[in-house]
Design a protein around this nucleic acid. Structure first.
Length: 830
DNA sequence: AATATGTTCATTTTT
DNA sequence: TGAACATATT
């Protein structure tokens, strides 16, 4: 009993002890929401409620895992169902999908698959794309699904050309999906909602079974999700929704804030509990958040009550360029880390769009700060992974034509466009799956000799996979790899020696698969594996390794960090240009910033730059949101005149020379008598101390006990950190023992900090080894100064291609102009 | 079928 | 800006 209720404040306790009837928990950021939810689950069980009757729904796997973990800590293993909406629906449809024509081995199409499928469907209609944009159609269909509107429910009234097209494409798409025995993400929700809506008997049955429903982040539910939740809590309205209207940031995905705003209307006798005490952030941070969000009109008033002690002022920084912004932020992090005031993992850098991570990545790399990038390219979106999975998917669901198309000629088997068109025609005419059509085409001798042999080869491989599916997933994967010599094929396709990153990814996939194999008791392993893979998101890859975290504001929801930087708080970025003319969308952008601000526990910096963008000629102005903040109580920093020089270290560097590390021995004095003249320190200044030769000599720089760690930090963010060499303090900033060394180390580090270390992999390779969570880091771009061991210094004229094939033309100072494949050439940033 | 070259396009967030 | 797409070339 005590374990469950101890340490909770009054309102938290009220929520936890609520048992019967509807409960609305309005939980501000940092108010211990997850704690309440998990403790409530424990409390219910303690009251004798069957764990089988409790269902807890979240939006992300991460939130679900966290919940499981914490409930586990309170209760040990328990059969409470905790998972994502999509996961719940997938399971639901495995059972009841047949009601709408799905069999239990259906495929789940991700957005790419879905796009291909829509393209296929369009070919079955008379819709022409010449005057329409495919993304508009895709979005339109998704919007309908989010509102659980099936094709049958559409009336004939088209209000625009896109609308008109959608009315034709949507039914064709649904038909195509059904023929493929497949669903897309939106279908998972829509189909579930539809089945519940049209089968009251089943609905009532489940309502009774799932008597206690908990929904996290209720402000982010869309209509389809609303219908599902509603359907499951009609007869037994023991429903607890938790959320914060101020953190609703998924309107674009169909989330309807009205669901939470109207909850009290939907369910009579709602108990409302407000969690307003904030246990996360300093009063300074909360004040900024509070003042900002009060500019929103469409919201439920709510206060943030600080419980933490006062801390540093929130900073608003202005830079001349995005590059300065990145450099300065990385500098600040480096200094804190070097002084052992914080670990890399204490820092998060948040931004509006994924594209904005690049400069920061570069800046962190240059300083050898370890980071993890969340979002961007996803593991399961990599070509090698998708290809391999397509083989598995086709085995699991032979009617999955999208998977068929993906791999039928991968690696090339001579089944070119022409032959496949014939097969497609046959498939379409007879409404049979491609796989079946291919066999038929062979029987009817429709194929050329070359295509015939390719087709036979493919079918042979496929049939063998089916055989092995009885053994294990790993066996299947291994067979594909072996039979197709896949890695060699992919490497040659990318005109590259076998790349370890591809192998690494494949290895990762194999180990994921083997995990499922081991727990596969009921023989549904393959299906489970595919489902798990389809429904996994990249935010799930968040680790608590000691690394700086880079991610979008959206991805940051639910997380917290001691030190947060929010970058590019600029007009047209945040708020985003596409939300400019829509007051509701502007409010959502404001909420997004609110979410970002409230991630910070101790310090927070919001920054903008006046130049950002590709040609650095894009002028940018500060976000109007910055004007709404309580500026009087914040610290305003103007670095626009710094010209790459920052005074970050004014009070931290020794006065005299940098060789003198005296002042590093002690914590920097608290800016005592207002350090007379701010000294500006440029990194370039270190150049004289550490001449070119020295900088060029890696041993000199890395011949320290911690060199391993540094190298490792920069190169292999994903892999487990190497064991620290003995005598190294863990987890200091990569462990430096004694301030003496810290001084020397800091000086050296900063001296080279605009230089990527020799021996470090080139950008593209790095990109692939950052893989699992990350976007490739393309460090090289036109205009950059680089050095080549053979040809010396030069400037990049242009950069072409991408990935491992990315080429750069370089004009060397000695006169030659040469082209290099960036993934191979031993180039360094000069 | 693979490569080279030219063209257009669109620039958010993601389960 | 560059990346996806389309077309031309070998």
């Amino acid at each position: 009993m005590n374990k469950i209720l101890d340490g909770l404040n009054e309102s938290q306790r009220a929520a936890v002890q609520h048992v019967e009837g509807p409960l609305l928990t309005l939980a501000g950021p940092g108010s211990g929401k997850t704690r309440v939810v998990t403790h409530r689950i424990a409390y219910l069980i303690e009251q004798g409620i069957s764990p089988y009757s409790i269902v807890a729904l979240t939006f992300t796997n991460k939130a679900a895992q966290e919940m499981k973990h914490r409930v586990g800590r309170l209760l040990g293993d328990s059969p409470v169902w905790m998972g994502t909406f999509h996961g719940y629906c997938a399971r639901f449809l495995r059972y009841y999908g047949r009601m709408i024509g799905l069999s239990e081995n259906f495929s789940i199409f991700d957005t790419d698959d879905s796009k291909s499928a829509i393209e296929q469907a369009i070919m079955n209609t008379d819709v022409s794309l010449t005057h329409l944009k495919l993304p508009d159609i895709i979005k339109g269909i998704s919007n309908l699904k989010n509102r659980a509107i099936t094709p049958e429910m559409l009336d004939g009234q088209a209000r625009s050309a896109v609308d008109h097209a959608i009315r034709k494409v949507y039914p064709a798409y649904q038909k195509y999906l059904l023929q493929n025995n497949a669903v897309d993400f939106d279908d998972l929700l829509m189909h579930t909602a539809t089945i519940l809506r049209t089968n009251n008997e089943l609905r009532a049955d489940l309502d009774e079974k799932h008597r206690y429903i908990l929904v996290d982040e209720y402000q982010d539910t869309n209509l389809a999700q609303y219908l599902i939740v509603r359907g499951l809590s009609l007869d037994y309205p023991n429903i607890n929704v938790t959320g914060d209207p101020d953190q609703s940031i998924y309107g674009w995905r169909g989330a309807d804030i009205a669901n939470i705003l109207n909850f009290e209307r939907d369910y009579p006798n709602v108990q409302v509990v407000r969690l307003e005490e904030n246990y996360r952030s300093t009063p300074e941070i909360l004040s900024a958040a509070d003042v900002l969000i009060s500019s929103n009109t469409r919201r439920k008033e709510k206060t943030l009550i600080p419980t933490r002690e006062s801390g540093e002022k929130v900073r608003i920084a202005t830079y001349a360029s995005a590059r300065d912004e990145a450099d300065h932020i990385a500098d600040q992090i480096a200094v804190h880390v070097l002084q052992e005031e914080a670990h890399p993992k204490d820092f998060a850098i948040l931004y509006r769009t994924n594209a904005q991570s690049r400069l920061l990545e570069q800046a962190l790399l240059k300083r050898k700060l370890n980071y993890q990038l969340i979002g961007g390219f996803r593991f399961y979106h990599r070509q090698e992974i998708r290809d391999l999975l397509a083989y598995l998917r086709l085995v699991n669901n032979p009617t999955d034509d999208i998977s068929f198309h993906r791999i039928v000629n991968v690696p090339p088997r001579g089944l070119g466009e022409k032959s496949l068109a014939q097969v497609s025609e046959l498939a379409r005419a007879r409404e049979i799956p491609m796989l079946v059509a291919l066999r038929a085409a062979i029987d009817r001798a429709m194929l050329s000799k070359k295509a015939l042999s390719g087709a036979k080869k493919f079918l042979e491989l496929y049939d063998e996979l089916v055989n092995r599916s009885a053994i294990s997933i790993v066996e299947m994967l291994k067979h594909v790899l072996h039979a197709t010599d896949y890695i060699k094929y992919l490497a040659s396709k990318k005109s590259e020696a076998p790349d370890e990153s591809i192998e690494g990814n494949v290895q990762e996939l194999l180990s994921d698969a083997s995990e499922v194999d081991q727990n596969n008791e009921d023989g549904t392993g393959l299906q489970q594996f595919l489902e798990q893979v389809s429904l996994s998101a990249d935010t799930d890859n968040l680790t608590d390794d000691n690394r700086v975290t880079l991610m979008t504001l959206h991805a940051a929801k639910g997380l917290e960090f001691p030190h947060v930087f929010i970058i590019a708080v600029e007009q047209d970025i945040l708020p985003h240009s596409r939300s400019r003319y829509d007051a509701n969308q502007t409010e959502e952008e404001r909420r997004l910033l609110f979410v970002g601000i409230t991630r910070a526990k101790q310090t927070l910096q919001l920054s903008s730059a006046s130049q950002r963008g590709f040609g650095n000629n894009r002028m940018s102005s500060a976000s109007p949101f910055l004007m709404e903040l309580p500026r009087a109580e914040m610290q305003m920093l103007d670095y626009t005149m710094s010209n790459g020089r920052f005074d970050t270290f004014d009070d931290q560097w020794p006065d005299s020379s940098f060789g003198d590390s005296e002042s590093f021995l002690h914590k920097p004095s608290k800016k005592g008598a207002k350090s007379s003249k701010p000294k500006e320190i440029r990194f370039e200044d270190f150049g004289s101390e550490f001449s070119e030769e020295k900088v060029d000599e890696p041993l000199e720089l890395f011949d320290e006990p911690f060199s391993d760690e540094l190298e490792n930090a920069a190169q292999k963010p994903k892999k487990q950190d190497k064991k620290p060499a003995s005598g190294i303090k863990e987890p200091g900033i990569q462990g430096i023992d004694g301030n003496d060394e810290l001084g020397a180390f800091a000086t050296k580090l900063l001296a080279i900090n605009h230089q990527l270390p020799r021996g470090m992999k080139t950008a593209s390779e790095l990109g692939s080894s950052v893989t699992l969570t990350g976007t490739p880091v393309d460090v090289f771009e036109a205009g950059m100064r680089v050095s080549h061991p053979r040809y010396g210094l030069g400037a990049i004229l242009s950069v072409d291609g991408f990935g491992p094939k990315k080429m750069a033309r370089i004009a060397f100072d000695e006169g030659d102009t040469k082209s290099f494949q960036l993934s191979k050439a031993p180039l360094e940033i000069a």
